[in-house]
Computed example of a mutant assay.
Amino acid sequence: MAAPARRLCHIAFHVPAGQPLARDLQRLFGFQPLAARAAGGWRQLALRSGRAVFLVNEGAGAPEPLYGLDPRHPVPSAANLCFEVADAGAAARALAAKGCCVPVPPVRVQDALGAATYAVVSSPAGNLSLTLLERTDYRGPFLPGFRPLPSTAGRGWFSHVDHLTLACTRGSSPSLLRWFQDCLGFHHLPLSPGEDPELGFEVTAGSGQGGLRLTALQTPPGSAVPTLVLAESLPGAAGGLDQVQQFLAQHGGPGLQHVGLYTPNIIEATEGVTLAGGQLLTPPKAYYQRPGKESQILAAGHEPDQLALQGILLDGDQGKFLLQVFTKSLFAEGTFFLELIQRQGATGFGQGNIQALWQSVEEQAARGQEAGAGSHLS
């Protein structure tokens, strides 16, 4: 374990000039501007909802943008995860000693509010890079080099990032799991009892129809790092590309496929996003007609008709439930979406929930209703 991650600081996106991600995060999802910077051909805007911070890097300057790396990816992408570490310099040296590529060695930056040190490490997950940040000496609202923006009364639908899901090439999950274990201190989080970390949790779509393998990782108790989920296709899919393969094809390889944003009130958040013009996936009616689904929703204290109207998925038992709804892609290429999630006692991703979600989205995709929406599991 070379550089144990303490918390997720922000998720950085690289988009071309004029791409509306920053506007959409504010207008559709209630994010509020936090800090901004413009230099070297880049416009950088940090936005916040609760503890969830997104940094939108817009443009394509000659040097790398501050606190990130410009991968010159062919499509807009969630390209960087910034983790806080105890000592950025020591972490970068330790990762380099393990053979990791460190394209941005430790850099110290400061302004009137203090100083911070960061380094950027390449990950084995496609174009995704990792910023290792040490900022205990910084007193500002975001990071040195950024101009703080006036805070406004936001809608506050989301409190933090619940999980991050990477779409991976087939067979790569075990090596990715080992890399995140050895380099950042993650460990395997079983999604079902007795799960083999080399095999993950398999969701099959039927005989000869392929399916999905999910492998979840988390950091030790006490850290503030979201669960990391690795998603890859199982062999045997018929009738064209499955959901993960569609992401890989449109994105041009592995990458961060979606972010789960936690909301304490998913009904209110879903209604707010919809009224603002956000586009959410609508599960097939068959999802809510599954045997036992109505009684399950009622046991969780919700109305089946209301969840169906808003497209909210629910699963769980023994008084512990998970509610989820998914947006359509925030990029025209169909390579990134958001998940709104509320937990009523559930701490993981239950087996029944994953199976039902996979099947319902596959049914929907087969009917051609949500072209380009990407994979919407976990």
Rank of each mutant, 00 (worst) to 15 (best):
A2M: 08
P4M: 10
R7W: 11
A12N: 07
P16Y: 14
Q19K: 04
Q19E: 14
Q19W: 07
W42T: 04
L45N: 07
R48D: 08
R48A: 10
S49L: 05
R51C: 07
A52C: 10
A52Y: 01
F54C: 12
L55M: 02
A62G: 08
A62I: 14
P63W: 06
P63F: 04
E64I: 08
P65L: 02
L66C: 02
G68M: 03
D70W: 11
V75K: 05
S77Y: 11
A78E: 07
A78D: 09
L81F: 08
E84V: 15
V85T: 07
V85H: 05
V85I: 05
D87S: 13
D87F: 13
A91G: 12
A92F: 12
A92I: 10
V104A: 02
P105C: 04
V107R: 15
R108Y: 05
R108T: 14
R108M: 11
A112T: 11
A115M: 14
V121C: 15
S122F: 00
G126R: 15
G126F: 12
S129L: 12
T131A: 14
D137P: 02
D137K: 14
G140L: 11
L143S: 06
R147P: 04
P150G: 06
S151T: 15
T152V: 15
R155V: 12
R155M: 12
W157N: 09
D162W: 09
H163L: 01
T165W: 04
L166E: 05
C168L: 06
R170I: 03
S172L: 03
P174N: 00
Q181H: 13
Q181N: 11
C183V: 12
H187E: 03
H188S: 05
L191I: 03
P197M: 00
P197S: 00
E198S: 00
L199S: 03
F201G: 12
E202N: 06
T204N: 01
T204K: 01
G206W: 03
G211W: 04
T215G: 00
P220G: 01
G222Q: 00
S223Y: 05
A231L: 00
S233N: 03
L248K: 15
L248W: 08
G252W: 11
G253T: 12
L256N: 14
L256H: 14
Q257Y: 01
H258E: 08
G260Y: 00
L261C: 10
N265V: 00
I267C: 04
I267K: 00
G272I: 09
V273A: 12
V273C: 09
A276W: 03
L280A: 10
P283M: 13
K285M: 15
Y288C: 13
Y288D: 11
G292M: 14
S295N: 08
A299H: 03
G301S: 13
D305P: 13
L314E: 07
D315A: 11
D315P: 06
G316Y: 08
D317E: 15
G319L: 12
F321H: 15
F321W: 15
L322A: 09
Q324G: 03
Q324P: 03
Q324D: 11
A332K: 13
E333R: 10
G334N: 10
F336T: 10
R343C: 07
Q344Y: 02
G345I: 04
T347K: 09
G348Y: 05
G348F: 04
Q351M: 13
N353M: 13
Q355H: 11
Q359R: 02
V361P: 00
E363G: 08
Q364A: 06
R367C: 06
R367Q: 10
G368N: 00
A371N: 13
G372L: 09
G374P: 04
H376E: 05
